[in-house]
Structure formats: structure tokens, C-alpha cells
Design a protein around this nucleic acid. Sequence first.
DNA 1: TTGAAAGCGATACCAT
DNA 2: ATGGTATCGCTTTCAA
Lengths: 365, 365
Amino acid sequence: MTDQRTSPVTLHDVAQEAGVSLATASRALNGSSRTVNDAYRQRVLAAASKLNYSTNLSAQAVAKGSTTSVALIVGDISDPYFSSIAAGVIKGSDDAGLIVTMSVTERSTQRELELVRALRGQRPRVIILAGSRSSEEEHQGALAQELQAFESNGGRVVFVSQHELPFDTVRIDNYGGARALALELVALGYTRFAAITGEHALLTATDRLAGFSDGLASHGIMIAPDHIVTGAFTRDGGYAGALELVDRGIDDVELVFAVNDVMAIGAMSGLRSRGIEPGRDIAIAGFDDIQTVRDVTPALTTVSIPLFEVGESALAVALRPRDVGVGVVTGDGAGAGVAGASAERDVAVATSVVLRASTPGIAVR
Amino acid sequence: MTDQRTSPVTLHDVAQEAGVSLATASRALNGSSRTVNDAYRQRVLAAASKLNYSTNLSAQAVAKGSTTSVALIVGDISDPYFSSIAAGVIKGSDDAGLIVTMSVTERSTQRELELVRALRGQRPRVIILAGSRSSEEEHQGALAQELQAFESNGGRVVFVSQHELPFDTVRIDNYGGARALALELVALGYTRFAAITGEHALLTATDRLAGFSDGLASHGIMIAPDHIVTGAFTRDGGYAGALELVDRGIDDVELVFAVNDVMAIGAMSGLRSRGIEPGRDIAIAGFDDIQTVRDVTPALTTVSIPLFEVGESALAVALRPRDVGVGVVTGDGAGAGVAGASAERDVAVATSVVLRASTPGIAVR
DNA sequence: TTGAAAGCGATACCAT
DNA sequence: ATGGTATCGCTTTCAA
């Protein structure tokens, strides 16, 4: 009820109130080993609660030389792909008694770099990068340097999805998943495809498109160059992409593959707006298996990624002892294509194709 | 390239490298007033960049007695309702040079309390609570006490949506929005309703149901008690709720109102699984206007809330000077029903009804 | 302007 | 087991 802006009560105040030394108070409140007389301990606890004391984490961090925070960088938090991963990271952190701070790159590699720089000041235990990685040379270099400095000071770095830098990674098999999807679709009887992909520098997008194309190629099928459109990695990007495809003419196309679910869902609406009914007039497939694909009509065929687990794994990888070098592989890791020297530190997450109503058996129309 | 775990370079190192005093280095790197000789300043900057220096934010916080962080508490980050609000908070924070830390209550009021307690240690500038507020007495008391202690130490507290505690609030007009929706639906010709709501203690759920019911009541319409089911505030809760309704028998029901979009979307799938086609056999309406409601079939009628702006507003409210007491009202604030002494500190966010294909004109069937 | 030194809040080593 | 005190990295008087 007191409304005056009192200054925060410090450990010193608590010690005084309890009639013990600063050191004892500290030990009673935090010290791991229970080396403190129970009577004293009670007095300290009582004093703390009476004064409504709350440990100053910053001061604690300075004194201990380490924090309890995890920095998570995502591309866009309102995208279910990222928010599901974030949920996993947060869950894992909570369980480990860590606090997560979250930043958004808005899918800008420039911003990603700035964030890493700023975040370093926080001295987090871990930095997890789940933003979409790009393959721009100069950017990669600067980012790598910053992260290396962070690691050499004891921090841990973990990437999610594909990347080309020498850091721990929770690798999502984008290529293999897309390839498997292509094979299943061919088996269903489809032979004429179109695709909506993300910008060229986006590794996730290019890997998926490459996997899909290669899968088709193994059956001698090719996607005509003008049947591949590029758009923003978002719902609206998918919508616009679909319109573009229609404008270019896709009368002979049986199935449209969008490199992620959000785009696929946007594409469905785009097609529908042009009088083309997904699942009847044309088939659609996406990638990610986000929650909502079950609730759109028709339900979307896609490649499933255990996103929440990806987030949990990222944290687990970060927390595991530094010298553990044995690769842990979740799932079958099909086509993981481990490459390079640091591969053994990677965790591969398996993907699986999920066929739904958006790709009915046997070619439509 | 150096792989040895060097200890972080400190300001001291930078000062030494630049051949200036600690104080000067500090001023050159952070000090607001440009009271430092430009030649020195350059040397310090050069030294800092050469050594790859990064300010230790914890130490800075201890010395200055204040941090640059914002603590955001949400119910469930993978729920688009929360992630959209979070996006707004993050955007606003970035613009203000603040870092946001994010925690999840998993919709547990117990957990919410624990989080607030833990978060206080962080000494954030602001704590924003967007988790669903509950009306449980004991919990409210403990929470209020913790928050009050935080405020009296200079922190700012902001609630999002409805609440019953004396803190700044970005108020979402749940009651008014639902009431307006009911009126529009009645105007469309609907007369027989069912509802799927959240647990009793959830203010958001009860306010919306109350608004909806009152809207109907003003036209002499009532929802039969056994046509109101309760479920989890999630997609699956909506799905289950729909099944429950069907089991109870809803042959005479023309429209189902779910208290949020995620539940409504789940309900649509639930109904469909029982052979009842939403938009044709029965109408559906939700609340929130999350992104995906435009992409489900039929598109969902709902009450729109500018979620991203809600997040931005929450931060703006938190950052505004302590003594500003004038109420800022965004939008028309229809039915905002400002009440109590602290109301003038509130910001009301207007909601608006959006009619879509899930509620075709004139009663169906 | 610049530098020396006194904090900020907490931890941990070292005696007692 | 407990208390005194140096220390952590940085900011900020206070003199010079």
C-alpha cells in the first residue's frame, strides 16, 4: 500500500534485519552447499520475506561472472514456425532455471548481426539463432567473427536449421524432406508441378526447392522455369506467388509446392480468389506442418518438423558439456548429408511426409 | 581464429590499450554528454573495436542502478493471439533501445505469480502481463503485492486485456465487442445460438460470453444453458467443445460462437468431423481476428482486435512519464465502460466486428 | 576535459 | 559454520 518510491532492499538490509553478516545472508539465500545453521537460515529467510527482498540478478551476474539467460533470435515471432520453436526453447530454459530473452530480426541479416552484437553485452549463457540464415558472404563473415568472440569467452552458440558456419546446429533436413515429399507425390500420380519459393539467399528455401526438384528429377520430371515463382517467406508472399503463377498460366499444372506452410496457405487463398479450388482443381503441398494446416480446407499435405522439439533440442545442445563431440541423432536423420568437420556436433531432426486432402490420389483435373 | 577461452575483455583493457583512464573510456563508449576530447574518443573507439569489446550490461546495470530490459509474460507463445501482441511489444522495445525477455505462464496463475517473483530480480524497467488474467481471489492478492513492490521500486507494470488490479492497462473491449457481434448476427437473421467458452475464472472468456449474451438478450434471445460448453482456451479445446455440443444435440442451433478464433477454428474442424459443414449446415463466429481466419474455409466471422498495436501500446503506456494521468483512447472505444479510480490511466483499444463467409446472411438450414 | 577513487549489490576466499 | 573483505565491471562524483 505504500506508494512512495522506496529504493530496493538489498542483501545488506536483509542481513541487518536478521542480525547476521552479509556473507551468511548470501549463503542462506543462494549458496548451494547448505553450510548455514538452520536457525540463522530461518531468520534470514524471514527477514527477506518480511522486507520483500528480491535478489538483484545483475549484481549476482557481475559477482559470479555468469548469467542465467538464454538469448533467442528469431525471424518473426508471429510466424508459427518460429513461435513453436520458441515455445520449445522457453520450455527447456524454464526447466533448467534459465530466463530467455527474445529478439526479432524481421528477417534482415543486417539486423541479425546488430542483434548478436547487442546481445553479447548481456553475457547470456547461450545464443540460439533461429532466424533464417542467409548465404551472403560478407554478412556471414562478420557474424561468424562476432559469434566466435562470444564463444571464446565461454558462451555457447547454436543454430537452428541449415547453416554454413562452424557452430553447433540443430539441423532440419530440408533437402531430404522435400525430396521425400516429391517422391510420394510422384507415386500418387502427379507429373506436372509448379513451385513457390523464397528469395534466393534464403538457405531454407533453396534447400527445400532443391530437394523437391531432385526428387522429381529422379523420375525424369522437371519443373519448368516459368513455373517457379519467388516471393516473401510469408502468407502474403504465398498469396502473391499463387496469383503470379495463375497469371503466367498454369492450366497444365497439377500440383503447386510452396516451400513452407504459411506460404502454401496463402497460396490456397490466392488460387481460390481466382476461382481455382485447391484440392479439386489443383493440388497443393507445403512444408513445416504447423498447427493450422489441419484446419484449413482441404487439409494440407506437408513435411512435418517437430518444431517444439527442435527448440528443446537447441537448448539441450547448448547446455551439454563443451567437450562432448559425439553426434546425437534424433529420428532417422534420413539424407542428413552430414558435411564438413564440425558435423559431429550436429543434431539432426528427422522430417516426415504427411499426406492430406490437398493432394488427393491420382492426378486431378 | 583464436580458439582459446580468453576471458572477456573489460573496459579496463580498452582504456589501457587506448592509453587513457577508465573513466575516459567509459565516457567515450557510453556517457551521454559528449564531454570527451575527440582525439581520445577515437583512440578508445579504435581500441574497443580492436579488442572486440562488448559492454557488460550486468555490470552497467549495477553501476547505474537501472536496466534496459522489458519483461513480457504471455500465456502461450505459440498461440497467435499472444505472439502477435509479443511482436508489437518487441517492435516497440527495439525502437526504444530496450531488450525484451519473455516468459510463458502456460496459462497457470500459479506459474504467473512465480514468474513475476523471479522476474523482479531482473530489475526490468517494465513488466507487461499479457497472460490471461484470472479472478481467483487469493492469487490476485499475492500478485498485486508483488507487483506493488516492483512499482514502488521504480518499475512499471502494464496489463493487457481486462483485469481487476490497480495497474495501468491496455484494455481490450471484450464485452463490447462480443455484444456488437451478437447484434450484427441477430440483424443477419440468426435466432438460435450455442457457445463454446473458456473456464470460468478466465476473465477474457467470461467477459466475451457476457457481452454476447447481453447482446442477444437485448433482442429477447437467450442461449439455452445446455448449449453452452466449456473447454480449454485452445484449438483442441474448441474441437472438443464442438463435439460435446453435437453430442448434446444442436439440431436446432443456427450459430456457434466460440470465445476466441483459435477455439472457433478447432470447432469448425470438430463439426466437420461429425459431418456438419460450417458455413452451410451451421454458422460460426469467433473473436480476435488472428491472421489465419482469412484462410480457413469458410472465412471466419469474428471481432477484430489490433493485436500488434495492443503490444505497442502496452509498451508506450509503460514508457510514458509516471505522472501523466490523462487517458489516451485509441479508436472509438465503444462500450469501454471505464470504471474505478485508476481508469484514467487506461488505454482502450477498439474492437470491430468483421462479417465473413462463416455467417452467411439470413438463417441457414 | 581528464583521472583517481568511491560506490553499486552480490559472491567467495580466507581467517577465525 | 560464520564474518571480514577483496573483487566483479562499470558509472559517477570530486579534484586537479
